[in-house]
Amino acid sequence: MNNHEIDYKIYGDDMQFVEVELDPDETVVAEAGSLMMMEDNIHMETIFGDGSGGGSGIMGKLFGAGKRMLTGESLFMTTFTNQGHDKRHVSFASPYPGKIVPMDLSEMGGKIICQKDAFLAAAKGVSVGVEFQRKMGAGFFGGEGFIMQKLEGDGMAFVHAGGTIHKKELASGEVLRVDTGCLVAMTSDVDYNIEMVKGVKTALFGGEGLFFATLRGPGTVWVQSLPFSRLASRVFAAAPQGGGSKDEGSVLGGVFRMFDGD
């Protein structure tokens, strides 16, 4: 194997974190800011790109960092290496309520395509790159634009998404239509396209948007029940506007808001 072999354990239900067990000289790569805790003798280092060794020299590192910038990620990633003589543990936390999904890339053809911001951590050697959508419709209306993340290698990677994550196996020719924001990840053999909602009334007043993603098998697809964009829009809608306060939806709350001038 080209990747470091790491063991792990996932804790929690809705606010999960993953604990990675490192043997001596083993390394895990994670998104900057995702660290929760780590034991003694673990050396932390900030690097350009993903540290997979795909590019050599300063230009290769800058190219790798530039690809990450296109997906909206930080230019830097953080490596955690066990420099002790015994097993050590390092933990990474989810950035918002949801689930952490472990993915063994060696069992998935060596490549996974996922939404931006989904990557949490991986064994050193996993390449975190860019996947350009070749179809114009998927690029313009797919919710993730032309650019998605791709994870390549033969090691373990950890992906995070909101709500509950459902894994679905698609048979050859089987079609699954999902909301564009609910798609978390898919194997590279899945055919991905965007389809417009049929019917003027449904498109304008259905509340589900104008487009949905069409996924055609064979392959594996991961779907989330609560995209972060949907959660953020609900929080923003419930937030007080103009510096006022929003109480619970009761009669007294409405009376008090009248006196407050809200």
Score class of each variant (00 low, 15 high):
Arg234Trp: 04
Met156His: 03
Pro24Lys: 07
Ser74Trp: 08
Met69Ile: 01
Asp23Asn: 13
Thr202Asn: 15
Glu21His: 12
Ala213Pro: 05
Phe92Arg: 05
Val221Thr: 09
Asp23Arg: 09
Ile100Val: 08
Gly181Cys: 11
Arg177Glu: 13
Val184Asn: 09
Pro218Trp: 02
Glu19Asn: 06
Thr220Tyr: 00
Met37Tyr: 12
Phe228Pro: 03
Ala157Phe: 08
Leu70Ala: 00
Leu151Tyr: 09
Val29His: 06
Tyr96Arg: 08
Asp13Ser: 12
Phe140Ile: 15
Tyr11Ala: 10
Gly98Asn: 04
Ala121Ser: 09
Gly242Ala: 05
Lys246Ala: 12
Gly84Thr: 01
Glu131Thr: 01
Gly129Pro: 08
Ile112Tyr: 09
Leu62Cys: 01
Val28Asn: 01
Phe140Tyr: 11
Gly163Glu: 06
Ala213Ile: 00
Glu26His: 01
His89Val: 13
Gln16Lys: 14
Cys114Ser: 08
Met108Asn: 15
Leu204Gly: 03
Glu26Asn: 06
Met148Lys: 14
Met44Gly: 03
Asp191Asn: 12
Ile113Val: 10
Lys135Val: 02
Gly54Thr: 13
Glu169His: 14
Cys114Tyr: 03
Met44Cys: 01
Tyr11Gln: 14
Ala203Cys: 02
Ser52Tyr: 01
Ala171Lys: 15
Gly261His: 09
Lys124His: 08
Met69Phe: 08
Ser34Pro: 09
Lys168Trp: 07
Gln241Thr: 08
Phe92Leu: 03
Glu208Asp: 04
Ile194Cys: 00
Glu144Met: 07
Ala239Trp: 11
His160Ala: 06
Gly155Lys: 10
Gly254Val: 09
Arg68Lys: 14
Phe158Glu: 07
Leu75Ser: 02
Gly219Gln: 04
Gly206Val: 00
Ala239Glu: 07
Leu226Gly: 04
Val101Glu: 06
Ser74Met: 07
Gly54His: 13
Met136Pro: 12
Ile112Phe: 10
Asp179Pro: 04
Leu176Ile: 06
Gly145Gln: 10
Gly139His: 01
Met15Thr: 06
Ala161Phe: 02
Gly60Trp: 10
Gly253Thr: 02
Gly49Pro: 00
Gly60Ile: 12
Ala203Trp: 06
Thr202Lys: 14
Met1Tyr: 15
Thr79Leu: 08
Glu45Ser: 12
Asn2Met: 15
Ala203Thr: 11
Lys201Val: 07
Ala138Thr: 14
Thr164Cys: 05
Ile165Gly: 09
Leu210Phe: 15
Glu21Met: 11
Leu105Met: 03
Arg88His: 09
Gly51Tyr: 08
